[in-house]
Design a protein around this nucleic acid. Structure first.
Lengths: 237, 237
DNA sequence: CGTCAGTTTGAGCGAGCTCAACGTGAGTGG
DNA sequence: CCACTCACGTTGAGCTCGCTCAAACTGACG
């Protein structure tokens, strides 16, 4: 496999391009090596492949190496709720720690690859490397504040504000990965966007339409070009 | 101060009535003693007193000993969002870990008392007592899944379902504390309920009205009697 | 070239919002 | 002890944003 292939599984944490965003973030070279020893790099996943399903025994948390992953729950009455979109460098699966079972299911939204981090090993390592313990507490806390942002969004904001907020979030996360904040491809369908934001597909489609008419966006299927980032930011607040 | 006073600050973790629900949950007697050494028991708080405010430096997480606490965020445009209600035995303040600043503010909804747990000390202790580390990871994870339940509720459920879900949640948490699951006093105002559930005060009031007309509840101001727990459960799903 | 999933567009409807009025009870001062 | 206030809660009437249902469009893939 080509070293430049984004789904390459031959790299280790020290060489991984997501290095500066991912779990190694706060660690020293020597510590990264120890982390690297417990990380299992998986084969590439095809679209709609599951990484885990709700109810399965929790063993590991995961980091996105390439592609994009969505998390979702299914309630008693069978209604799905998308709870998160995960981009390269981001960690997911922490919902499983509490009950020792995943409460979410996770699937690839496109061809993707993930790193598996066995949680027992991570806990042991966190005792040996307090920085790692702290860092992981921080990651979980940020997941909490993220979820609370979404709660506020769903509780208080209009359809346009919700869509704008998602676009700004993706734009910001792209910036962090040194990608263009104004030109990107949405990895998820309109249905996923609507589900995540508590809107119907039709409403999402209409909002995109309005944003285009106001010369704020250029939308071509999943390709997005943000023409007026400032106006979009204001809407997202 | 009377040993039976619920706001008594003279007890230690080993003797505290919340013992079986709170942080000590998974610990052995000897370990509880060590936890006890770092816990600071505060003076009783009056209604509307703040424990901390959003933006303040994060130092500690807190446990409710008596009374009830609400967490809320304020967005850029000044809109408040209630993010949680905390009852005795529950931990709050974990949102501050990620950025080393609280993202929520926390106030007492009635006369209350809380235990302050300095986070640096808790981290150190977590290294010495792996069970504690695990337990705290679990607590944070359960905060995540709680928030995700709320996300689903806001995204997919009607006003009646939302109110029913809140009532069932409080009922269940009362049961855990060996209190009646069918007769209790809501510590929060209608405005807080509405804010938390993404509804207006008027809608909350009307839903309570409808529930009463259907002989599901008996509502007298903040006093609630659940007459048909099963029907309420079904609505809450 | 037909099929099928995903998306867009249109028309009408309804749950919950807004605005406004009124009720209730705890606290305060005469 | 009553009159007044003020926060909180209830009730009513009308409106609106986003939903529902239905139809048409697009492009990828056989």
């Amino acid at each position: 496999m080509d070293a430049k292939c984004p789904h390459n599984s031959e790299v280790n944490c020290g060489d991984c391009r997501m290095n500066a965003l991912c779990l190694p973030l706060a660690l020293q070279a020597k510590e990264v090596e120890r982390l690297d020893e417990i990380v299992q790099r998986g084969r590439p996943l095809q679209r709609d492949n599951h990484i885990y399903r709700a109810g399965e025994e929790f063993r590991s948390v995961y980091a996105v190496r390439s592609g994009s992953i969505k998390s979702y729950t299914v309630s008693n009455d069978g209604v799905e709720q998308v709870t998160g979109f995960h981009l390269p460098g981001e960690i997911f699966g922490m919902d499983g720690i509490g009950q020792n079972r995943y409460t979410n299911s996770a699937t690839a939204m496109e061809t993707s690859s993930v790193c598996e981090i066995p949680f027992n090993r991570l806990q042991e390592l966190s005792i040996a490397i307090p920085t790692l313990q702290r860092h992981f507490f921080q990651l979980m806390s940020m997941e909490i504040t993220n979820d609370q942002h979404l709660i506020t969004l769903l509780s208080k904001n209009s359809a346009e504000e919700r869509v704008a907020t998602l676009l700004i979030s993706i734009s910001n996360r792209n910036l962090r990965r040194k990608l263009s904040p104004t030109r990107f491809r949405l990895p998820m369908s309109r249905a996923d966007i609507g589900n995540y934001l508590g809107l119907t597909v039709e409403t999402v489609s209409r909002v995109f339409g309005r944003f285009q008419k106001q010369d704020m966006l250029l939308v071509d299927k999943k390709e997005i070009e943000v023409l007026d980032l400032e106006k979009l930011r204001q809407l997202a607040n």
